[in-house]
Nucleic acid binder design. Structure first.
Length: 273
DNA sequence: AAGGCGTCCTGTCAGC
DNA sequence: TGCTGACAGGACGCCT
């Protein structure tokens, strides 16, 4: 499932491969997750050139040379992949952008949770980011330990892991990296915020930084369906410590898998307290 | 007011 | 063999 490191990987690859490339034609095979509509998307973006790519939280922003931005949320199974022009579309390739460089860019999403939203670039701040929908970016310099602690302490009665995953608290952390951060901090995902010590907040901060940066290094974690722009698996899954693990890499004890709310959580009952 | 759970979707796999 | 149900989870909306 794409979280911050996976979306960042795709953003970097798209910046490398697609800046200045023109969209010649758009084929919409399933338009149910396109806003405002497939017709508007096709009309506005046919003939437009990719100008730059940004990431905010788990959102991928593709800025075009005509003043429009395509906002993409990959949710759980969405991916952008480049294929040689004319490659037979797979079943879940919902939108095909035919490009001027001899490739087709597919928006592919098995479970149809992901969406494409077309907006005027100038409207992004007011319509998407202006309403405190998104917490701070964990890899920005301004995201200090003090900022993180303050954000978490705003919700003192919440359980640690669900709060880490709440995009209005901190942007970009999902199930994998929340498990990893808790493991790094030797803290159980079920702890209430108001029981955490200063030392634990510090370790949690380090855990968030380390796990996100490590994962970006290895092009993201291909748990579930995530693939990068070249339809290749990320390698981070090999470097995970907690998510999906049976044994704790620190003490070699058995990991425990539990449900918090209706979501899975993985932790080591021996090292995480 | 804030916490927490149901919902959307489809493919995979365990179990009978 | 074929069916059923559980599971995967981001983020919104609803309920308590």
């Amino acid at each position: 499932m794409p979280e911050l490191p996976e979306v960042e990987t795709v953003r970097r690859q798209m910046s490398q491969a697609l800046v200045g490339v023109k969209i010649k034609k758009i084929i919409v095979r399933f338009g149910g997750r396109i806003q405002p509509s497939a017709a508007v998307l096709t009309k506005v973006l046919t003939g437009a050139k990719f100008q730059s790519f940004e990431r905010r939280a788990k959102l991928l922003l593709s800025n075009f040379n005509n003043g429009w931005t395509l906002v993409t949320h990959l949710k759980m199974t969405g991916k952008y992949v480049l294929k040689k022009h004319g490659t037979t579309p797979e079943k879940h390739a919902h939108v095909i952008f035919e490009l001027s460089n001899g490739f087709d860019l597919w928006f592919h999403d098995v479970r149809k949770f992901g969406y494409l939203k077309l907006l005027k670039t100038n409207d992004l701040e007011t319509k998407i980011f202006g309403k405190e929908n998104y917490g701070p970016e964990p890899l920005e310099k301004s995201f200090t330990m003090a900022v993180m602690t303050e954000r978490l302490k705003m919700r003192p009665k919440k359980l640690l892991k669900p709060l880490l995953m709440d995009p209005t608290c901190i942007a970009g952390i999902g199930n994998i990296y929340a498990d990893e951060a808790c493991w790094h901090a030797r803290t159980r995902p079920t702890r209430r915020i108001n029981t955490l010590t200063k030392l634990e907040f510090a370790a949690l901060y380090e855990g968030i930084q380390t796990s996100l940066k490590e994962s970006i290094k290895h092009r993201g974690a291909s748990s579930e369906n995530y693939r990068d722009l070249y339809d290749t698996e990320g390698e981070s899954v090999k470097f995970l410590h907690a998510y999906g693990k049976e044994k704790c890499p620190r003490c070699h004890g058995a990991m425990k898998k539990i449900k918090i709310g209706s979501r899975s959580a993985h932790f080591c009952p021996k090292c995480q307290s």
